[in-house]
Design a protein around this nucleic acid. Structure first.
Length: 220
DNA sequence: CAGTTACG
DNA sequence: ACCC
């Protein structure tokens, strides 16, 4: 939908309601056995307001003692993360333009008061691979900046079914979630938690695209 | 006041 | 500048 030379793309309404509902079903079934955990900031131990889990061979976690990292096991249960739903492989193939499959799907649940401060994704060895994000449930105020801690930011509303791609230079842009707009979607089943689920697909390790000779190049 | 937020 |  919105295409730009920065590598930022907002695919407004990329997933229709049926596709969103099918994805939610796949997500909730996996969250049942890989429960949401409460991440904590490195050093301070301050708890984040967003709750998380992961799918795929690797998952992003953080805690006071060991900080930000990817690991193969759930930090609470010690079990391997559930597999990635096929629909997410398909989405990655459709929008990422990257030759290697995703290895991590970070599942972020934002309750009505949750936020995520401005940050730059930097924990992946595959630092040139795009990041693909899917919004499900309540709308969110998303803020996108540039590559430096200073500089202007712009805010965008992300609605259920929207897909965001951060590729090229935008892969290293600051971004965060200022707030959730409670009650703006009926997608999440009554009886589950209210709010927003964001799925973020990432390539973590260097694959074919990370071999010597084509570092940093964008595949056709 | 420190840590965080917002960049309106 | 604002919040706790």
């Amino acid at each position: 939908m919105l295409q730009s030379e920065t590598g930022f793309r907002l695919l407004k309404g990329h997933l229709d309601r049926a596709a969103q509902a099918a994805l939610v079903e796949a997500v909730l079934a996996r969250v049942d056995r890989s429960p949401l955990f409460t991440p904590a900031m490195p050093r301070t131990g301050r708890k984040m307001s967003v709750r998380m889990t992961n799918f795929g061979p690797l998952g992003w976690v953080t805690d006071k003692d060991r900080g930000y990292r990817y690991q193969a096991a759930h930090p609470v249960t010690g079990e391997a993360w559930p597999n990635l739903p096929q629909a997410l492989f398909d989405l990655w193939e459709a929008v990422s333009g990257w030759p290697d499959p995703p290895e991590a799907c970070l599942v972020n649940w934002y309750g009505p008061g949750a936020r995520l401060g401005q940050h730059i994704d930097a924990d992946e060895d595959a630092k040139f691979a795009p990041v693909v994000s899917v919004s499900l449930g309540d709308s969110a105020k998303f803020r996108l900046g540039g590559p430096t801690p200073k500089g202007p930011t712009t805010s965008l509303t992300l609605d259920s079914g929207d897909v965001v791609v951060l590729a090229g230079p935008a892969r290293r842009f600051r971004h965060g979630v200022d707030r959730i707009y409670p009650g703006t979607s009926t997608l999440l089943p009554p009886g589950w938690r209210p709010g927003r689920i964001n799925l973020t697909l990432r390539r973590v390790t260097k694959g074919q695209a990370g071999q010597a000779g084509d570092r940093g190049t964008q595949p056709a």
